[in-house]
Computed example of a mutant assay.
Amino acid sequence: MSLIKRSLAELIGTFWLVLGGCGSAVLAAVFMAGTNDIGIGLLGVSLAFGLTVLTMAYAIGHLSGCHLNPAVTVGLAVGGRFGYAEVPAYIVAQTVGAILAAALLLLIASGTEGFTLTSTSLAVNGYGEQSPGGYSLLSGLVTEIVMTCFFLFIILGVTDKRGTAVAGGLAIGLALTLIHLISIPVTNTSVNPARSTGPALVLFLSGEGKALAQLWLFWVAPIVGAALAGLIYRFFEEPTASA
């Protein structure tokens, strides 16, 4: 399949990830709080992010590999599973998909009475005063590196041809769910530069720039973590027999 078609599949998949994951946080996390309290909370949002990856793994995994994440794309390249020449096209497609989803989510969210544009309007990522739990820059940096490293390590493991995994999409989706359960209080969980860029850029264009100022961390840390996982996993490769 052509690179253009595979990149388009990545755009669609990342759109779904941001719409489903961030949408659950913005629209459903605290729905009717203080009255009937039927919001899905941290557990529901974590599961929603996992479900977006799980569903797209089976929808487009055979088309593009279902990266949905610039850090995953870079990590797979470092791990020898993806060509470096195709990395830029995937990253552009993923980022565009995330921006389009964030724009649609803002349109939906702003259609309610009393809507106020803030950093929480699109479930943006952040540290310090932008962190849900007030965690520092260092805490955010370490968390994003470690969580992305393990996420990519799991992806490499369940997609390894030497393995016996028959439900790789399920394992990857559950891994992302677990990551969110751990790190939502710290950074609102990124592990995905595109997921962070979409909401931050849309809010910036709408007049709220705090998230964009912290966006650098959510590119640097996930990519470092994913690249580290790629290097670590290659350590377990069997040496190629000489002719």
Rank of each mutant, 00 (worst) to 15 (best):
L3P: 06
L3S: 11
K5Q: 06
R6W: 05
L8A: 14
E10Q: 13
L11C: 04
T14D: 11
G21H: 13
G21I: 11
C22F: 02
A25N: 13
V26Q: 14
L27M: 13
A29V: 04
N36M: 09
N36Q: 09
N36V: 10
I38A: 13
I40T: 11
L43G: 14
L43F: 15
L43W: 14
L43T: 15
S46Q: 12
A48Q: 13
A48W: 10
F49K: 11
L51H: 07
T52L: 12
M56H: 15
A57Q: 06
A57H: 10
Y58D: 02
A59R: 05
A59K: 03
A59E: 02
I60P: 07
G61V: 08
H62E: 08
H62T: 07
L63G: 02
G65F: 01
V72T: 10
T73N: 09
V74A: 10
R81G: 03
G83V: 00
G83M: 03
G83Y: 01
V87M: 00
A89D: 02
A98T: 08
L105H: 00
L105K: 03
L106W: 07
A109D: 05
T112A: 06
S119K: 07
S119M: 05
L122Y: 02
A123R: 05
A123L: 01
A123W: 06
V124W: 02
N125V: 08
G126C: 13
E129L: 10
Y135A: 14
S136Y: 09
L141S: 04
I145E: 01
F153M: 15
F153H: 08
F153C: 11
G157E: 06
G157N: 12
D160I: 00
D160A: 03
D160T: 03
T164L: 13
T164F: 14
A165L: 01
V166E: 07
A167G: 00
G168L: 11
G169R: 12
G169F: 09
A171I: 04
I172D: 11
L174M: 15
T177N: 08
I179A: 15
H180A: 04
I182Y: 03
I184P: 05
V186E: 00
V186Y: 00
T187E: 11
S190H: 00
N192G: 09
N192C: 12
P193H: 08
P193V: 03
A194I: 05
S196K: 05
S196C: 03
T197L: 14
P199L: 05
L201T: 01
V202H: 11
F204V: 00
L205Y: 10
G207W: 02
E208F: 04
L215T: 04
L215G: 03
L217Y: 02
V220Q: 03
A221S: 11
I223V: 15
G225L: 05
R234P: 07
F236H: 12
E238A: 12
T240I: 06
S242M: 07
